[in-house]
């Protein structure tokens, strides 16, 4: 875990927050306390030792805070003045407000009781910040999907998912055993053994429409090699709108002024992506792929004639 940076100010802030935390967690284990504040144990002992020297003017044992931590468990007394937690700063409020909005949007539709409860918090927090704007966070997927995947990963259990494939524009139900969660290009993906395809498959989380726990299927031989698929090499030339093309094909900004040799697992994805680039992208090779794109465009044009 990354340790917090040390400046006199950040340490002062931590000490001010330590007092109320200890006051509400009397007898907490030193190790747990250090973890809760994201510092090493020796740093926590240094913090507690400093705190021990503080108190009300006079600074006799009657006025100083009374800390005990020799036993490995920490207690605090005579610290009433600082015993209440400090007010949230704007940064903390922004973090919580965005987080709360995400939670509200992620709660199941029918839990209006919880949504109301969370809205009440949003109201209270907003009233205590200087930020009059609404901070919105709309999740890309139902909140329960990730939670189910995370628990399936832990328990190595299976899930039945309803998945919308954007490549083929189809919805299918699949039995999967999640292997790994990964973030790529801002989107979350789950790598899973897919029993419907008898192979490992990658699913984008926000395309999973629903998920439920399912019994683990009996062991079946998995054709992992098949899952890799054959990579299709192709070459494109960019004619216009490089920003969209760059984002669509995940290209590097500094390499766009030449013909680009790329690969993909899916012919369908290449065809759709070139069509969706609306003339900004030309397939330079292979020829059969270029002809496939041209044929697709002609077929769409034919549909327009009748309309």
């Amino acid at each position: 875990m990354a340790k917090s940076p040390q400046t006199p100010l950040s340490r002062t802030a931590r000490l001010l927050d330590l007092v109320p935390y200890l006051s509400s967690h009397q007898g907490i284990e030193l190790l747990t306390l250090a973890q809760d504040f994201d510092v090493s144990q020796s740093q926590m002992i240094a913090d507690l030792t400093t705190l021990w020297m503080c108190g009300l003017p006079g600074y006799t044992p009657l006025e100083l805070m009374d800390l005990s931590f020799d036993s490995g468990f920490v207690t605090i007394h005579n610290a009433e003045t600082l015993a209440r937690p400090r007010t949230l700063n704007d940064e903390e409020s922004i973090a919580l407000l965005l987080g709360l909005d995400l939670v509200i949007e992620s709660l199941p539709q029918e839990r209006t009781d919880l949504k109301t409860s969370a809205m009440e918090l949003v109201g209270k927090l907003s009233a205590r910040t200087s930020i009059p704007a609404k901070l919105s966070a709309i999740p890309a997927m139902p909140g329960s999907v990730r939670s189910l995947i995370e628990s399936a990963l832990l328990k190595k259990s299976a899930l039945k998912i309803v998945y919308h494939s954007s490549y083929s524009d189809t919805i299918s139900t699949r039995l999967v055993v999640p292997l790994e969660l990964r973030v790529e290009g801002g989107h979350e993906y789950v790598w899973a053994l897919c029993h419907s395809a008898h192979a490992t498959r990658v699913f984008r989380l926000d395309r999973i429409q629903s998920a439920e726990v399912a019994p683990l299927p009996s062991a079946q031989p998995m054709d992992v090699a098949h899952a890799q698929g054959a990579m299709i090499p192709y070459t494109i030339r960019i004619h216009s709108r490089p920003r969209e093309v760059m984002e669509r094909f995940s290209l590097d900004k500094d390499s766009l002024d030449q013909d680009l040799q790329l690969t993909s697992y899916s012919r369908e994805w290449i065809r759709r992506s070139v069509l969706a680039s609306a003339g900004s992208v030309e397939i330079v090779g292979p020829d059969d792929l270029a002809q496939e794109v041209a044929a697709a465009a002609r077929a769409i044009l034919k549909e327009y004639i009748g309309k």
Binding site: P20, D36, L102, S106, A137, S144, S147, E188
Partner: peptide, 22 residues
């Protein structure tokens, strides 16, 4: 940390299993 210092126990069991991420 500040919220946990208010002395109100968090009642996680009252929430459905969701794990939203930013």
């Amino acid at each position: 940390t500040k919220l946990r210092s208010m002395g109100v126990e968090s009642d996680l069991d009252s929430l459905p299993a969701i794990a939203p991420r930013l």
